[in-house]
Design a protein around this nucleic acid. Structure first.
Lengths: 191, 191
DNA sequence: GGAGGAAGTCAACGGTTGTTGGCCTACACT
DNA sequence: AGTGTAGGCCAACAACCGTTGACTTCCTCC
């Protein structure tokens, strides 16, 4: 009954604990930032002893690295209608932000912790700049930075600072306001 | 010789120390964030004993409150040509941001510390929303939030995360790219 | 010139943090 | 049944934090 070939890594009991720690850490880092998210609090949320965190992730830094080690799978820019790239990108960003707490964690920590800032740089260089390059402008990096400023800025006021009017915007409203901005940053002739 | 009437608060020796503490604190808070900027490090930078910080400002929280207690003196929206409000606002923001480290401190701390976040909310409600109201649109708060998202986003990538392409932009380039965005958020008909 | 108070130093406190090592428990395998 | 081992807890360490109170130094004013 318990079908199939034995899995090469037999599901251990520790996997559940590991996952619980990761989820608790993601929430604590996202809401408290790196310094105020204590190992003790994370362990308490996960229902285990603080020493287990060290056993599984080596250190607090190692735990953080595991939390933010995630793929963002941007849409392939080649497959997007150039006239609607703003709409597609803004909508994709919204979904990415609300999928789980990882991006919120990354932004909150990246502002005060250098490891978090480096990881944000990686995302920028690895995902956003290549997307910007596909439009053929020589200053693709600059345009990617402009897009990042608007996208991260909206994330900042909406998910981190939680300014009331920004939180109250529907997805469609965010797209309607921001898509033309992003579209212009990526495709317009330089000013 | 030592002219004039006696000043009502005779210049004490402590004023210099107080100013030194404030400047050291502003720099530490701006570069390290609230938690990692220790009272001991600030006192060391200022060249005095940590206990003096407590004597002058009561507590670390009191010191932070003193650091971010500044006026932003936004330009009076009534006196701005409605067609160039984007240019004026973006340029003013740039100058405000580079005048001293206060805004950098506020952004860095506001992301993790609730007192900092509250102070940012004050700036938003007290300065940006009134400016947005002067254009007569009923959703002024929403428009102010959109402007904040672009302005804070640029500040984030340029002064906090320090993405290379964003740091490399000249003032004129920032204005040329961002002013149309801000102009549209404030004056365009709703989407 | 002596007194008084402000400016500053020093050492220590209680609490919290990340981290470590020893010990117990329960399950898997022969 | 017996044993090895992975999973987990407990107690403690050293370091560092904000904060406090007692002590010294130096200027100022009568």
């Amino acid at each position: 009954m318990t079908s199939g070939a034995e899995s090469p890594t037999p599901r251990r009991r520790s996997d559940a604990t590991r996952a619980a720690i990761l989820e608790a850490a993601r929430e604590r880092f996202a809401s408290d930032g790196y310094e105020r998210a204590t190992v003790r609090a994370i362990a308490h949320d996960a229902g285990i002893d603080p020493s287990m965190v060290m056993r599984y992730f080596g250190s607090k830094e190692g735990l953080f690295a595991a939390v933010v080690d995630v793929e963002l799978d941007f849409p392939d820019p080649a497959g997007i209608d150039p006239d609607s790239v703003g709409v597609v990108l803004v909508r994709h960003f919204l979904e990415l932000w609300e999928r789980d707490g990882v991006l919120r964690t990354l932004l909150r920590v990246g502002v005060t912790n250098s490891a978090g800032a480096d990881r944000l740089q990686d995302v920028f260089r690895g995902q956003l700049v290549p997307a910007a390059r596909s439009f053929g402008h020589p200053d693709a990096e600059r345009r990617a930075a402009l897009v990042a400023s608007q996208m991260l800025g909206m994330a900042l006021v909406r998910y981190v600072l939680e300014l009331d009017p920004a939180v109250g915007l529907s997805h469609d409203e965010v797209v309607a306001w921001l898509a033309p901005t992003v579209q212009r940053y990526l495709t317009a002739e330089g000013p």
